[in-house]
C-alpha cells in the first residue's frame, strides 16, 4: 500500500525535513484529523490505513499551498490526493456493471462521468 501511494502521488517522503511549513500554510487545518506534515510521515511509517480512515481528508482543498511552499519539494497535497483515490478504489465490489449503464444514460449526464465512474468502481 505504501508503494501504491508513493507511485500514485510521486512523493518521496524521505525528502521531508519535518519543518512543518506545509501545515503552517494549510487553510483547512482545523477540519482535518491529520495535517499535511503528518500525511508525509504516515506514508513513511506505513500508517496509510489510519490516514485513509481518518476524518477530514476530503477537506483538503487541493489548493497546493503546501506544495508551493515546501522547501524540499515534497508535495504533501499529492499524498492526500493519492490517499483519496485509494479510498475510492477500495470500496470493493463492482458498483457499476456494464449492463446497468444503458439505464443510467440520459441527455444531461456527460458520457465522461459514466466512464469515470465505471473506471473508479471497477474493482
Amino acid at each position: 500500500m505504501i508503494d501504491t501511494i508513493k507511485r500514485i502521488s510521486g512523493v518521496n517522503p524521505r525528502k521531508c525535513m519535518k519543518c512543518g511549513k506545509c501545515t503552517a500554510s494549510c487553510p483547512a487545518f482545523e477540519r482535518m484529523q491529520f495535517h499535511p506534515h503528518q500525511f508525509v510521515d504516515m506514508v513513511e511509517n506505513g500508517r496509510i490505513h489510519e490516514l485513509m480512515n481518518s476524518e477530514g481528508i476530503d477537506f483538503c482543498l487541493s489548493c497546493f499551498a503546501c506544495v508551493e511552499r515546501c522547501p524540499r519539494n515534497v508535495e504533501p497535497a499529492k499524498v492526500i490526493e493519492a490517499v483519496r483515490l485509494a479510498v475510492v478504489r477500495q470500496q470493493g465490489g463492482a458498483h457499476l456493471t456494464p449492463d446497468e449503464i444503458p439505464a443510467l444514460l440520459d441527455d444531461e449526464l456527460p458520457q465522461q462521468a459514466i466512464t469515470a465512474a465505471f473506471r473508479k468502481y471497477r474493482k
Binding site: T23, A24, H37
Partner: peptide, 20 residues
C-alpha cells in the same frame, strides 16, 4: 514549526504558523 504565511493587515502582520 515553520511560518506558512504573513499577511499585512491594518498595521499588523498576521502570521500563520505551525506548532508541530
Amino acid at each position: 514549526g515553520m511560518v506558512g504565511k504573513v499577511v499585512p493587515e491594518n498595521g499588523k502582520l498576521k502570521v500563520q504558523a505551525s506548532d508541530l
